[in-house]
C-alpha cells in the first residue's frame, strides 16, 4: 500500500476542512443573527414535547411568538401553572390562572355494550375504518375502537382497555387536545377537571334504534332533563346535554334516573397511572 497516498489524502482533506471551517466561523461571526435572549429562556420553561397543541409546529416557534406578543401564554394547553408563572415572569406580564383541562372519553360503547355490523379487516385505524361504511360497530356515533387517540397522545396518557375503549390517565393528561383532533367521531372532549357529571354518549338516534345499538346509549327519554332545574340540561337531537355554565358543580345528581347508565359521574381520581402499574 502506498503510504504516500495516505498522507496526501489526510493532509489535503484535513487542510481543506480546516480552511472551510475557518472561513465559515469567520462568516458566522459576521453574519450572526441577534435572537431575543428571552426566546431561549422561555423554551427552557415550555414542556418541550412539541405536541403542537398551541398551533405552532413546536415549542421553539411558540416561544418566539410569545416574545413577539403574537400569542398568549394560555395558548400552550400543556404548561402547568408553575411554568406559566415562570414564563410570565420572563415576559414581565401577569398570567391569569386557568383551570386544568383533561380529555374525557364521551362514549361507553365498548365491545361488550355495542354489537358489530360486520368484520372489518382493513387498516387498523379509526379514520380508515370510518371510510369503510362507518366502522364495524353498529353505532354510527360512538367510539370505533382502533385507538387513533391513543396513537396521537404524545404524553403516554392513554391506553385501550380490554373492552376496546380508550382510557385517559388523568394525572398524566395535559389537555393538549391531540386526541380530540385525532378522533373522527369527536368522542374525545376536553373538559375542566371540575366537571364531573357527563352524558357519555353521542348517539343521536331515536329511542328504539339507540337501544338496539348499544346497551349504554342515550335514548333521549328526557328523564334527566326533567329531574334537574330549568336550563341545567337540554335535549338536543335525541341526546341529553349538560349546560355546564348553569349546572356548575352541583352535588344533586340525577344519575340514578338514567335507565341506560349513560349519565354518569366520573370521579376526579378515577384513572391514575399507578393503576396500570398495579
Amino acid at each position: 500500500m502506498d503510504i504516500n497516498a495516505l498522507i496526501v489524502s489526510m493532509v489535503s482533506m484535513g487542510g481543506m476542512g480546516f480552511l472551510f471551517s475557518l472561513g465559515l466561523s469567520l462568516a458566522g461571526k459576521k453574519l450572526q443573527v441577534e435572537e431575543d435572549p428571552r426566546v431561549a429562556l422561555i423554551r427552557e420553561e415550555l414542556p418541550g414535547a412539541n405536541c403542537g397543541g398551541c398551533g405552532y409546529p413546536g415549542c421553539g416557534n411558540f416561544a418566539e411568538n410569545l416574545t413577539l406578543g403574537k400569542s398568549e401564554i394560555s395558548g400552550c394547553p400543556v404548561c402547568n401553572q408553575e411554568a406559566a408563572d415562570a414564563i410570565a415572569a420572563i415576559l414581565g406580564v401577569e398570567v391569569e390562572s386557568r383551570e386544568r383541562q383533561v380529555a374525557r372519553v364521551m362514549c361507553q360503547g365498548g365491545l361488550d355494550e355495542t354489537a358489530k355490523k360486520g368484520t372489518y379487516a382493513g387498516i387498523q385505524s379509526c379514520i380508515a375504518a370510518t371510510l369503510v361504511h362507518g366502522g364495524d360497530k353498529l353505532c354510527d356515533y360512538g367510539c370505533i375502537g382502533f385507538g387513533d387517540c391513543v396513537q396521537a397522545c404524545t404524553f403516554d396518557a392513554m391506553y385501550m382497555s380490554a373492552n376496546g375503549l380508550p382510557v385517559v390517565l388523568e394525572d398524566r393528561c395535559t389537555g393538549c387536545g391531540n386526541c380530540a383532533s385525532a378522533c373522527p367521531r369527536g368522542i374525545m372532549e376536553l373538559h375542566p377537571v371540575s366537571h364531573t357529571l357527563f352524558v357519555l354518549c353521542k348517539n343521536e338516534d331515536g329511542p328504539k334504534e339507540a337501544r338496539q345499538t348499544c346497551l349504554k346509549a342515550c335514548i333521549g327519554c328526557g328523564i334527566c332533563v326533567r329531574a334537574v332545574n330549568e336550563g341545567e340540561m337540554i335535549m338536543e337531537n335525541n341526546l341529553a346535554k349538560i349546560n355546564y355554565d348553569v349546572y356548575g358543580h352541583q352535588t344533586v345528581l340525577p344519575t340514578d334516573k338514567c335507565s341506560t347508565n349513560c349519565l354518569v359521574v366520573v370521579p376526579a381520581a378515577e384513572q391514575s397511572s399507578e393503576k396500570i402499574a398495579a
Binding site: 497516498a5 496526501v8 489535503s12 465559515l24 443573527v33
Partner: peptide
C-alpha cells in the same frame, strides 16, 4: 497532481456543504 482523484466525492461534498452553510447564514441574516 497528487493522484488522489478517488477523493473527489468527499472533497466535492465538503465544498458544497460549506457553501450551503454560508448561504444559510446569509439568508437568515
Amino acid at each position: 497532481p497528487y493522484n488522489v482523484e478517488i477523493l473527489e466525492y468527499v472533497a466535492f461534498i465538503l465544498v458544497i456543504a460549506s457553501l450551503v452553510q454560508l448561504v444559510e447564514m446569509f439568508i437568515r441574516k
